[in-house]
Every structure is written in C-alpha cells, then in structure tokens.
Design a protein around this nucleic acid. Sequence first.
RNA 1: GGCCGGGUAGCUCAGUCGGCAGAGCACGCGCCUGAAAAGCGCGGGGUCACCGGAUCGACGCCGGUCCCGGCCA
Length: 308
Amino acid sequence: MTHPHLALVGPTASGKSAIALEAARILGDVEIVSVDAMQVYRGMDIGTAKPSPSERAAVPHHLIDIADPWEDWSVVRFRDAAREVVADIEARGRRALLVGGTGLYFRAVVDPLEFPGEDRRIREEIDAEGPTSALYGRLAAADPRAASRIDPANRRRIVRALEVIKVTGRLFSSFGPGLDSYGDPVIPVAIVGTRSDADRLRQRIHDRLIDMRATGLVGEVQALLDQDRPLSRTASQAIGYAEVIEHLEGRLTEDEAFAVAERRTRRFARRQRKWFERDPRVQWLEIENPSDGVASALECWSSCHTSA
RNA sequence: GGCCGGGUAGCUCAGUCGGCAGAGCACGCGCCUGAAAAGCGCGGGGUCACCGGAUCGACGCCGGUCCCGGCCA
C-alpha cells in the first residue's frame, strides 16, 4: 500500500474513460478500477455512461455491475471492495488504474480515512428528535470541534455526527485526520479536464444528454421501474434516472426531465472539479486530443514513479 | 381601431400605506468522513420599458409614448 496509485480522476464527461483505455493499451499491464458511485449498479448502463462491452473486453474493468439497483450502496462498501480488487490485481503482478469522478470514494481508497460505524435506527431516532438548530446546539455542546466544521444548517452532517457519538461513545472529531490531510504525498493522480475551457465541458455534457436520450435512457429507466423491487435510496438519486422517473410518473415532460438532468450534471461537474482541485497531488491534463492526454498522463506517472 | 392585463436580476416572477430594490432557479466562490451523481453555506449581478409631471421622497401616483398577451370589432 506504500506504492503510488495510478489514477485518472475528474469531472463527468471530461473524457476520462477514453484516455484510460488508451493508457491501458499502451502500458499493457494495467487493469481499470472504476471509482464511480453509480456504475456499480447492474442495469444502469446508459445514464451512468458505462464503458461498452467491447471496451470492457479489451481491458479488464472492475467494480462495475457489482450491486443490484434495489441495494443501498455506501462509501465503506466501495472502499472495502476496491481495496480487495486492487490487492488482487497486484498479487497477479499487474497494476490498478483508478478511473472515476466520485471524489469521496477515491479518497477512501487511497487515503487512510477512518469511517466510524453506522446505525441506521439510531440515526433515524436522532433525526426525529427536533429542529436542526436544536440538534446543532447539542452537537456544539458535546463536540465543539466537530460543530465548528459543520454548517449549522447542514442537518445531515449534524445528525451523522451525533449518531457517531452515540454509537461509538467517542467524539466525532476524534476520528482520523479528516479530509484536510492527504495520505501518501507521492501518489500521482491526474485530473482530466477543462480548467481553461468550461464552455467545452458544458458542450460535452449537452451532447452526452442528447446521446443518452437517443440511446434509450427512458426505456432503461422504465425497465428498472418494471422490476418487482423498487430502486434503492442511493440508486434512485442518480442524475438522469431521478428526472426520468419524475417524467414517467407524470410530473415532468420528457423535455423538462432532460433539461433538469443537464443542469444537474453541470452542477455536479463543477463540484467534482472543485473537489479534485483541492487535492495537492492532482495534476491537470488538457485533453486537446486523446493521444496528447495519454502522453501527458504517462509522463506524469513515470516521472512521479522515478522520483518516489 | 376599442377594452382589459402585463413590461422589475440571465430566466420565472413577488414587491403591503409612496420611505435604502426582493425570492426561486441559473451562474460564481467555498464547505462536507458510512446517501457523495448525496447534503450544505456564501454572493456577484438592476437605466424597475421610455419621456415628462405632482411630491421632501416614486418600481408604486398622474399624463403621454413604445412593446407583449388576451378579448371585442
């Protein structure tokens, strides 16, 4: 676990997948590990922009299609599965290339974040106990450090902190160094993207939504709804899926659903870009053309290796 | 042509009795350790269609002009 990871992270629709495939072809000994909260779900293919069957045949991909859409998913489930897969790849003498845009999942795999246990029942009890301001007051009294890092209006985080205190008997702020502290400083990572050209990513997002619509996203969502089990809380909030469900249940027109999904994708991409920009290990790649991006990525990875 | 309604932030609109121009969304900046494609905080943006009038003071009242929508002819 002390060796550097190979990784390509960055906003959705920035071209990570194509560059990863090209890099894998060139390097020859790498397998791709998807770092994506929604590609884990079987049956959610079009809207999550999963790699195609032929792409997955050309290079081994992992952590795609490992859960059913009625299962709740979580960062800890992902981290445990990812570490197992990476260890297995390395045991076979190959290298793992982490590719994806789910920032917290990436950090959980690569950095020593410590996730205190959860208890859904206790969480729901706390959530039912009163207004956000009262819960925040309790947290501020019990764990001032944690309270100082959580916004007084952010009910979900406040409830979670109180849950951890109740379940573990320890202060929420006593768990790990937090997101501010980065583990291995020599891990080379690349953010693929469009720092200098936001309009371009915007256009790519627009085109991608049109493409998903043409490829049959509505039908895919209908098939998910036709299953005998309802979509889980986590699966049902996927961008594109949530909006098409609204459409199929009659609350939005199809045009409206795709317009909302596009706006939400733009906001998501911005949040992803911000997340990865904060990570000092991440280096930008411009993607004027795929071969350029691959060359830059390989150069970064090899130079970071030799200096490590 | 007549009558009625409307014109306020990029968009949709609110604006009480005339007293410092507002909300939601968009956009930007930031936070966030078991939902993370989730959750949350902050704020940059205005010739209140235009011209004139009364008033200490007008987005608001009075007169006129232009534009949009509806009904009537």
